[in-house]
Design a binder for these strands. Structure first.
Lengths: 188, 188
DNA sequence: CAGTATGGCTAACAGCGTTAGCTCAGTATG
DNA sequence: CATACTGAGCTAACGCTGTTAGCCATACTG
């Protein structure tokens, strides 16, 4: 079905202290501008005008801090995808794929952090993941196809980000081929 | 076209000293049985009955050692895929996908190592990557679809390995939905 | 005013990849 | 045979990482 639940609101972000939010913002800036290898506790401390151990007054460990970044990324991506999924069934799959690509390629380090390795569902805001992925279900006819479409999108993005495709690849065409394959009706 | 080059032989592996091969084998065993976090120079040295710095007599650095593992994985995967692609066009896509899934899920740590982050093409055996991916071209009608199919397969595998799908997912059905979507003819 | 939380600090630890420099066995060469 | 060289091990150490312990000042709060 193309209409499921009425998009159950983006989930209230886990509330953090003002200083913790600053830490998170600084971490995000380091990650996005200098890469994941530069996101160290000491580097982060320097950016905040603080010593590294002081960060532990705001986050119990680095994993928890990264989890904050991941949640933010998933929330943002969810918004983008829901916007793309809304507004008519006509070409909805292509729109969602396009939105997915644009957001993820614009935030490669964040996306890699969010999708590398196992997901710590226990520690995450419940149902945030589910909500963010919902648009894929909204634009497909069944949930198997929705998951397959998501896998395609993720594969494309991560391979594009990591520069894994052959150097002369025309990725616009690859995305189009994928969107075509998943189009509900017979293809041309 | 479904018939391209006649599968240009699996590439001769870069020749290494006997001891280097032993190091590589030990590294692989650690990686596959204990996980990537356990693959440290000191742990590897212990397994070989050697001190960590001695490993540098055989490999210039850890990255080069890992690259050896990646090459081995790609060669093995290439063989598996070529076997699956051969033997008739009937259901070839499904067979290649199945082979991809079986091999990668059986070697999750190796696969993650091989596909995480940018690929160092300069240091790799030339065309090994191309050859390993060739089966996707052999079973599709055009190269855009081939790349899209590969992206789907990679997305599925990496998400499955990292346990990223919702807990109750029936992944057999998801794979089937993907194979169905990429089937050359109109779908049922 | 006393007490307690907040948020900094320094010193330090274990583990990581890696380098420098030594040694010793085996082989090849004069 | 003696010499030199090369391969492959060793220890000590460096700089980096995340993290802990313990100390101290400031600022609310009863």
């Amino acid at each position: 079905m193309s209409s499921r639940a009425p998009a159950p609101a983006p989930e209230p972000m886990r509330q953090r202290s003002a200083r913790a939010a600053e830490v998170l913002a600084a971490a995000r800036e380091i990650l996005e501008t200098e890469g994941s290898e530069s996101l160290t506790m000491r580097r982060l401390g320097t950016k905040l005008g603080i010593q590294a151990p002081s960060i532990y007054k705001h986050f119990p460990n680095k994993a928890e801090l990264e989890l904050g970044l991941v949640e933010a990324a998933m929330a943002e991506l969810g918004v983008v995808l829901h916007e793309a999924a809304g507004g008519g069934t006509r070409g909805a799959i292509a729109r969602v794929l396009q939105a997915y690509r644009v957001y993820c390629v614009a935030h490669p380090e964040l996306y890699r952090l969010a999708t590398a390795g196992p997901l710590r569902r226990d520690a995450m805001t419940p149902e945030l993941e589910e909500w963010a992925g919902e648009p894929f279900f909204l634009v497909t006819t069944d949930e198997d196809t929705a998951q397959a479409l998501w896998a395609f999108a993720h594969g494309m993005v991560i391979l594009e980000i990591d520069d894994r495709f052959p150097p002369d690849s025309k990725l616009d065409r690859t995305w189009k081929a994928g969107a075509e394959a998943f189009r509900p009706q017979a293809r041309g």
